[in-house]
């Protein structure tokens, strides 16, 4: 039986992009071991990591035109209001987010779920970067490690990851 990847809708995409930008389209061979939650979600601290390019107004804009990407991240206060945030990213349709940021960065829904005690709490910051990074190795070894370190320092129990 063919796997989903073998019958994928965009055959040849990985090879074509990797030819132009070597190793930019990542393929993993192994599955990461499932981590178990050590306490109920209602007592757990959650953080949100997003590639949506959302950032506090006034912070250094992401470099959205650099040919190989921007390998930095921004902290977004988890108690921020959407009106205090803006998007610097050109690689996905933002018309929905311009009307309601929660469609890609659901900060208000996560705040509500915390008030309702569905989630125990939120880390002080959420984490945001841009998804256009064409050096996969650099992405994994610098940006991903930097965010993981920051998330760990905030004692997050749960991480919700969303690309854009």
């Amino acid at each position: 039986m063919k796997t989903q990847t073998e019958k994928e809708l965009r055959p040849g995409l990985w090879e074509t992009v990797n030819e132009r930008y070597p190793d930019s389209m990542i393929t993993k061979d192994d599955f990461v071991e499932l981590a178990k939650l050590s306490k109920p979600l209602s007592e757990s601290r959650l953080t949100f990591v997003s590639t949506a390019g959302v950032q506090p107004k006034g912070s250094m804009p992401f470099d959205t035109v650099h040919p190989v990407g921007d390998y930095t991240f921004r902290r977004v206060p988890s108690n921020a209001k959407p009106k205090d945030l803006e998007i610097h990213q050109l690689k996905y349709p933002t018309f929905g987010a311009e009307e309601d940021l929660n469609v890609i960065f659901p900060i208000e829904r996560l705040q509500e779920l915390t008030q309702e005690k569905f989630i125990g709490g939120l880390t002080e910051s959420f984490y945001s970067f841009i998804g256009y990074n064409m050096d996969g190795e650099r992405l994994e070894n610098t940006l991903a490690e930097d965010i993981a370190e920051a998330v760990e320092a905030e004692n997050a129990d749960v991480v919700l990851l969303s690309p854009a």
Binding site: T5, I26, L34, A52, P93, L161, S162, P163
Partner: peptide, 25 residues
């Protein structure tokens, strides 16, 4: 296809438009 190649431990796939992973405004 991207998710199957990256192999995250857990994922939710939504057949939605890019930039709208959490739905509509």
């Amino acid at each position: 296809d991207v998710t199957e190649r990256i192999k995250p431990p857990r994922a939710v796939f939504l057949p939605f438009m890019m930039g709208h992973h959490f739905g509509v405004p």
